[in-house]
Design a protein around this nucleic acid. Sequence first.
RNA 1: GGUCCCAUCGUCAAGCGGUUAAGACACCACCCUUUCAAGGUGGUUUCAGCGGUUCGAAUCCGCUUGGGACUACCA
Length: 556
Amino acid sequence: MDYKKLADLLFPDVTLTKEDLEARYPKRELKDGAIVTRFAPSPTGFLHIGSVFTCLVADNFAKKSGGVFILRIEDTDQNRKIENGVKLIIQGLNRYHINFDEGVDVDGNDYGNYGVYTQSQRKDIYKAMAKYLVSIGKAYPCFCDEETSQRDKAIQEASKELIGYYGSYAHCRNLTYEEVEENIKAGKKFAIRLKCESNADHKIVVEDAIRGTLKLSDNFNDVVILKRDFLPPYNFAHACDDHFMRVNLVIRGDEYIPSIAEHLQIFNALGFEPIKYAHVAPMQKMEGNSKRKISKRKDPEANVAFYLEEGYPVDGVREYLLNVANSNFEEWRKANPDANIDDFVVTTDKMSKSGALFDLPKLNDVSKNVISKFDAQKVYDLCLEWAEQYDKEFASILKENKDYAIKVFSIERGTPKPRKDIAKWNETKSAFGYFFKELYKPTCLDDYAFNYEKFNKELLKKIVDKYITIYQQETENSIWFGKIKELGVEFGFADDMKVYKANPEQFVGHYGDVASIIRVAITGKANTPDLFQICTLLGYEEVIKRLKLASEILSN
RNA sequence: GGUCCCAUCGUCAAGCGGUUAAGACACCACCCUUUCAAGGUGGUUUCAGCGGUUCGAAUCCGCUUGGGACUACCA
């Protein structure tokens, strides 16, 4: 068989050669150990949080090693492609401060010397390489239709044989030149298949950067490397693109582990150096008693939009994800509490082999810590940015009361032990809303269970009423608090915690309880920052107004 | 079904043949207390099971169980 002739018959228009491509995409001149890697999404839906995770890791590898991080769009499946898919991905990634050295921008323009970076525009490369494989006898045209493969599959299933296109099921593997020519003349469309030289009994051993040594069964299938539409499936595009983009570490989800053998076979047939892999475990989610991969369909938290909507600060999510990525991150953060997150070096050997369960409470904790370190201006800016998109009412209140709002956010901020009231911006309103007249809702004090039988409605009202008569705008916290204590003593509360603890039955409660009553009366909340500062910000009139309101509600 | 991957507290996890089996989140208790938080201290809870190898196993090897992935002209 003259393979060269066959190749020309199949690809009469293709003149591009492997040598041309090797020359067009020369080896990169980078320092030793530089990692060239890529993120290669398919524009088939929203941006998945797992993608952000993988990108964070990949970006870190590339940047820290003096390498390159590439964005490549894998849009060879024309059926699953969605409108604006690419834009969605890039914008989402940019929100999380992930930037590429080469790739495609939001407007679809390429940047970098190893492009183009969109697979549907790289057809000439795939065709050239497919032609090359045919010309050296390592690939062949396949005219089989879907019916044939369905039928074969049914037979294989029934007889418990391996499922695939191999052996006697590889109908087109040994077609003669004349038969191929005849089919083409008849107008039959064809795909290109790799001529597999191995079998399932053969085992291969692969070193994975995360998994370590992997023992896999070899591929036995004559896999399709060029579909009937002459676009490659993932396997062939992966080999051609990662080779010619001079990628040296492929970071991808572990669902690809079973196809490593197939991919390496393609690299080998092509005469490419085998590539290194790092297979990342996917994020998981609890369902019933078992874990499962976090799913685009079922889980809102799979979509990065979820975190944006909830108002998780970008730095909080990034920090959480890094926490999941590398077990020593926490240690590093402890040692470098104020360091920039970008200074952390992610390593493959510290990456978990099994998928981490997405832990929202942990995210909240991380996020609270991150926010607690922001200054008031930053809290204001980020919160407003969030509110403008997701809570217009709150946004306009923030804008109208900018200086005031910043003062609110300043309470106990910038201290060695800053408050940790909020984990995400959508909590700001409920945590600080009472500061704003528009959002303050008086609450019935009696609804609060103070856990003391003696705390009846009448007593509460008496305390509030009395406080109204003695309240003054103080300049000193100590004076203000002294009055709270005095007020308590008058109604039988202890003004000394130790005395109270020694004989709790002798008192109605302690000064903390008095403060709580006043706190709820003024703010409608049991948990707030320092009440004195709140009163100062609110101003005398407003405080009195609210106390009167509280008293009124109690008399009903 | 076949192939492969994975398995330490409720969750994230250190661990690499000898440890009282770290730490973090969550939960509980206590302490501190000029309120609320924060903080401090302590606690509950873990090596999936069974067999080997070894003086010695969470660690190495088998099997079992459980979970997951793949099994497309999807990626």
